[in-house]
Each structure stands twice: as structure tokens, then as C-alpha cells.
């Protein structure tokens, strides 16, 4: 039997592929890499591209990833695939947007959390719950 290594390809939202393989090709950031069993430990980022997995029975699986992380252990390869297209500037834009929305929501508000008011609101909610409970009990009598 040929030497194999286990590969898991997962994305944040779902599991994509898991199985034994004799050879893996992945689009690493510095160029495509081929991973044979017993490869030295390695981590690298992946570019958008195709991961090719040659399975034990000679088939080749083609899996597209839009980037991610490749971790290699001698008997275990893990591909943490991204689901979103990522680039520094896209992430930055998303971050800015999130910030702006927050600022809009925050306009003319003070910066301290009013703990006393929070407590009061909780007390009110608790009182309401109690009242509902009491009503329910009365109804069941």
C-alpha cells in the first residue's frame, strides 16, 4: 500500500473534504506546493486557487479555495479554507464600515455606561416577569 497522509479541508461554515491521500497540491502564497506524506512541518497562507488531492484509489479531487491557511504535519494536513475573498484593503473597508455604523449609532451619547440605569432596567424587567408569573398563577387557579 502506498504511503498516505490524512487531509482535512474545512471552511468556517462547513466541512469540505476529509480522507487519506498520497499527494496534495496547494496554491501557497509563494507558489504552488506539492505535499507528499511525511513532509516536514510547515504553515503557509494560501492564495485563491485550486487544491488538488490525489486519493488512495488514484482519483483526483479538485477543490477551489479562495485563500486560507495550510498546515502540514508529517501525517496530517489541514487546510483552513476561507469562505470570503480576503485582501487587506477589503478587510480594512469592512472594518471602517463597521466603525462608521457604530459611530452613527453612538452620536451624541456619553461614553460611560450608566450602570445605575442598567440595573434599574433589569429591575423593571424582573418586576414585569414577576407580574406575568403572578397573573399566570391566578389564571390557573
Amino acid at each position: 500500500m502506498a504511503m498516505t497522509t490524512h487531509i482535512d479541508i474545512v471552511s468556517a461554515e462547513t466541512e469540505i473534504f476529509s480522507g487519506s491521500t498520497t499527494m496534495i497540491f496547494a496554491p501557497a502564497e509563494m507558489g504552488e506546493v506539492g505535499i507528499a506524506p511525511r513532509h516536514a512541518p510547515m504553515v503557509t497562507r494560501l492564495k485563491p486557487g485550486e487544491v488538488r488531492v490525489e486519493t488512495e484509489n488514484g482519483e483526483t479531487q479538485h477543490i477551489y479555495v479562495s485563500g486560507g491557511i495550510l498546515e502540514v504535519q508529517p501525517h496530517l494536513v489541514t487546510v483552513l479554507a476561507d469562505t470570503a475573498t480576503r485582501a487587506a484593503d477589503i478587510d480594512e473597508a469592512a472594518a471602517l464600515e463597521a466603525k462608521e455604523r457604530a459611530e452613527k449609532a453612538m452620536q451624541d451619547k456619553s461614553v460611560k455606561i450608566d450602570y445605575a440605569r442598567a440595573q434599574a432596567e433589569f429591575a423593571e424587567a424582573a418586576a414585569q416577569l414577576k407580574a406575568i408569573e403572578a397573573l399566570r398563577k391566578r389564571a390557573h387557579r
Binding site: 468556517a12 461554515e13 476561507d82 469562505t83 470570503a84 475573498t85 480576503r86 478587510d91 480594512e92 473597508a93 469592512a94 472594518a95 471602517l96 464600515e97 463597521a98 466603525k99 455604523r101 457604530a102 449609532a105 453612538m106 451619547k109 456619553s110 461614553v111 460611560k112 455606561i113 450608566d114 440605569r117 442598567a118
Partner: peptide
């Protein structure tokens, strides 16, 4: 309550994608 909200996301729906969250977490 006057908390210091520095970032926010809302209306991510029932099927959120990771991409919806990246900005706020970043």
C-alpha cells in the same frame, strides 16, 4: 446606556457568513 460602541454589525439574518463579521471583529 451610553456605552462606547466602537463597531457594529446587524441584520446578518438567519444564515450569517463569516464575511459579515470580518469588519466588526477586525
Amino acid at each position: 446606556l451610553g456605552g462606547n460602541v466602537v463597531s457594529e454589525v446587524s441584520q446578518i439574518g438567519d444564515k450569517p457568513g463569516l464575511s459579515d463579521l470580518i469588519g466588526a471583529v477586525k
